[in-house]
Amino acid sequence: MLARDEDILKAAEDWRKAGRGVALATVVETWGSAPRPVGSNLVIDEEGNFLGSVSGGCVEGAVVTEAIDVIGSGKPKMLEFGVADEAAWQVGLSCGGTIRVYVEKVS
């Protein structure tokens, strides 16, 4: 079953209450063609488990990595992802848009 927005936020709360380190990623800005609308959430724990999405699967891996950093430091981060250009192996959005994702620790 697909996770709904409230399931994602409920999971964030439940995971934190269970003692796990948790971060919440939110799409805050999009330009051009973007896979998920502004406000979309991804919840991540310190082991890299996640629920929800901020793109169509293109950048989740990178967001999870950054989120684990945020869980460690406690400092929020603003991430930006655009189209993957000449560095074809770099993480990027194949649809050609740009998104900005805010990652914060649940504390």
Partner: peptide, 15 residues
């Protein structure tokens, strides 16, 4: 996000 804010969001949504 503080846990109490997250908890309040979830409560409001449930209602």
């Amino acid at each position: 996000m503080k846990l109490d804010i997250l908890h309040a969001v979830n409560e409001e949504r449930a209602a």
